[in-house]
Simulated assay, not measured.
Amino acid sequence: MGEPTRWATDTGAGHSRWYVDRFRRMAAEGADLAGEARLLDALVPPGARILDAGCGQGRVGAALAERGHTVVGVDADPVLIEAARTDHPGPTWLVADLAELDLPGAPFDAAVLAGNVMTFVAPDTERQVLRQVAAQLRTDGVLVIGFGTDRGYPLADFDADTAAVGLHREHRFATWDLRPWRADADFAVTVLRRPADGVHPTGAAGS
C-alpha cells in the first residue's frame, strides 16, 4: 500500500463506520442509490466486466451486478470492503491502492469512480491513479468519473491528467442523470475512453 489516502488522513476516527451506517440507513429507507449504475449500464454491453474503483461499501458495484454484469470492486479502506462483502455478496471486493492497481484476469470493459473518489486519493497521485485504472481497461473501454468541482481537484487539472495518460474525453455532464454540463456546475461527470494506442501503467500514454 502506498501513501495514505485523503480518505484516511482528512476524516475523523470512525468516519468509515459512519459512512457504512449512513448508506445502510438510506437503503433501508428506500433511497435511490443506483444512479451511477444506471449510467454505466447504458454504456456497456450485457454481461460486461466492470471495475468499481474506489467502491466504498459497494452500492454502485452491487447495482451493476444486479443488472447482470461481472463486477470487481476495489477500495483502500478495509472497513468499507468488509461492509461490501457483508451487504453485497456476489461481486469480488478487494482491498487495494488505486495508485498501485494491477489486477489479474481479463481486461475490463468499463470502470467507474463515483462518490468523489478522485478527491480522496493520496495527494499528488491523481494522475497515477488515472493511469493505473485506465490500464485495467480493454482497448475502447469506457471510464466514467464523477466528483465535486469544489473539492480541491480543479477540472483543468483533471483534464490535463486524463489527457496525459492517453484517455479521450467523450462527454461531460453536470449530474449522473445526464443534465447538461455548465461552467458553474458544482459536480462533473466525465465519460472517457481508452483509445487503441493504449494506456501504459508505468509510463506515458501511447507508443
Rank of each mutant, 00 (worst) to 15 (best):
V142L: 15
V189K: 05
M26P: 00
A156M: 03
L33M: 11
V60H: 02
L43M: 14
W93R: 04
V191F: 04
H69I: 03
F158T: 05
L167S: 05
V142W: 10
Q132D: 02
G152A: 09
G166F: 08
F147M: 10
V60G: 01
Q128W: 02
A27L: 11
W7T: 02
P123T: 08
A53C: 06
G12K: 08
R49G: 04
A185D: 13
D41E: 11
L113P: 00
W18K: 14
A84I: 02
G54D: 02
D177S: 14
D197W: 14
R138T: 11
A164W: 09
I81T: 05
P201M: 08
L192M: 12
R182L: 10
A135H: 00
L51W: 02
A134V: 10
V72L: 05
V20F: 05
T11D: 06
D186M: 12
D197P: 01
E29P: 06
L113T: 04
P180A: 11
P201C: 07
D10Q: 14
M118R: 03
L113E: 09
R67I: 01
R182G: 07
R131G: 06
L39Y: 15
V121E: 03
H15F: 15
P4Y: 08
T125I: 03
L40Q: 02
D161I: 02
L167K: 04
P89V: 10
G14W: 05
R85H: 06
V20M: 08
G56V: 07
V199Y: 07
V71S: 05
V44A: 04
A163R: 14
L33T: 04
D177A: 12
Q57F: 09
V71Y: 01
G115R: 06
L143Q: 07
A111G: 06
P195T: 11
L80Q: 04
F158G: 06
G206E: 12
H171P: 00
A84T: 06
E36D: 13
R179H: 15
E100P: 00
H168P: 00
R138A: 13
R85G: 13
D124N: 14
V95C: 07
R17N: 10
V44F: 03
G115Y: 01
V133Y: 01
S207V: 14
G35Q: 14
P89Q: 12
T149V: 11
G54T: 02
A84D: 04
P107N: 10
A106F: 07
R22I: 04
E100T: 12
A160Q: 13
D140V: 08
T5E: 05
G206F: 13
P89H: 03
V112T: 08
F173I: 02
L155T: 13
A164I: 05
R67Q: 10
L33K: 05
H69A: 05
V60L: 03
S207Q: 14
D184I: 01
M118T: 13
A65P: 03
H15L: 01
A111M: 06
E82Q: 12
D21N: 14
L167F: 01
D87I: 08
P154E: 09
W7I: 04
L80G: 00
A163I: 06
G166R: 11
A111T: 02
R67M: 09
F173G: 00
A53H: 02
W18P: 00
L39H: 10
L39P: 00
E3I: 09
R49N: 07
G2M: 10
V95K: 01
V60Q: 07
